[in-house]
């Protein structure tokens, strides 16, 4: 394998057709991301994975790896941009980490820690988004949705059910459930669906699990996100 590029000065090999993100992940290098998942087609919506290639911004999850690329990833300047994106996500939804069962397992929270986000900086929107608790096994907590569309992709491409979709535009974008009533109970969604286990935040939750996992044993308790990156895997599942 002669094909390689430079990521923050390190040589990263790649095979033809791989994106910068895929090649970096395969080499065990962390490029911050929220909407990317190795099992699904890239989406390119969260912009967390922005890198600079030859001075120009690109999203690592969508840009193809090419021989001789010089990719800037974890510089203070780029992490500062990522911090701003995270702050916007935090104020757009209602993310109350202290009482959220996903705390310690949440990709948004872990990424915010890793990017050194200390305050929300912007004014909170405090949107009013009622929960959907209609399904006997799964709870939808829309307040925490970051619109990554992983559930949309999983339900459509893996489960072949098309339970979720995004509706509205811009600031009005929101996740909806594809049923006449709009309620999850009125779909053929099942707790065993791939879509039930793919949400990076605490928006799609198996019911009655809550805080069963003790502090110390949660995903990001032993190591922060990005520090435990096994080649080819994603650590949030």
């Amino acid at each position: 394998m002669n094909d390689s590029f430079l990521l923050d000065g390190e040589t990263i090999p790649f095979s033809p057709g791989q994106t910068v993100m895929q090649a970096a992940a395969a080499a065990g290098k962390y490029i911050p991301h929220l909407c990317w998942h190795p099992d699904f087609a890239p989406h390119g919506s969260c912009r967390l994975c922005i890198v600079r290639i030859g001075g120009r911004y690109a999203t690592a999850c969508t840009v193809g790896a090419a021989r001789g690329q010089v990719v800037e990833n974890r510089s203070e300047a780029i992490d500062a941009e990522r911090r701003t994106l995270l702050q916007l996500l935090f104020v757009e939804g209602n993310h109350f980490c202290p009482s959220c069962e996903k705390s310690g397992d949440c990709v948004l929270q872990a990424t915010a820690y890793e990017m050194g986000m200390l305050t929300p900086h912007f004014d909170h929107f405090y949107p009013d988004r009622p929960l959907d608790a209609s399904h006997p096994e799964v709870l939808l907590e829309f307040n925490r949705c970051i619109l990554c569309e992983l559930c949309v992709r999983a339900s459509r491409d893996v489960d072949r059910k098309n339970v979720f979709a995004l509706a509205g535009r811009g600031l009005r974008s929101h996740l909806i459930v594809n049923s006449e009533s709009g309620r999850l109970a009125d779909t053929d969604f099942a707790a065993t669906d791939r879509a039930a286990a793919v949400c990076p935040v605490g928006a799609i939750l198996k019911k009655r699990v809550g805080f069963a996992m003790p502090i110390g044993k949660r995903t990001y308790d032993p190591r922060p996100i990005g520090k435990s990156h096994e080649p080819g895997t994603r650590e949030d599942e």
């Binding site: 202290p98 009482s99 069962e101 009622p130 929960l131 608790a133 709870l139 939750l205 019911k207 009655r208 699990v209 809550g210 805080f211």
Partner: peptide
């Protein structure tokens, strides 16, 4: 009110 019950022990500590 309107929160899932399993959140309560953690939430009410506040």
């Amino acid at each position: 009110q309107g929160r899932p019950y399993w959140e309560l022990p953690v939430m009410v500590q506040r």
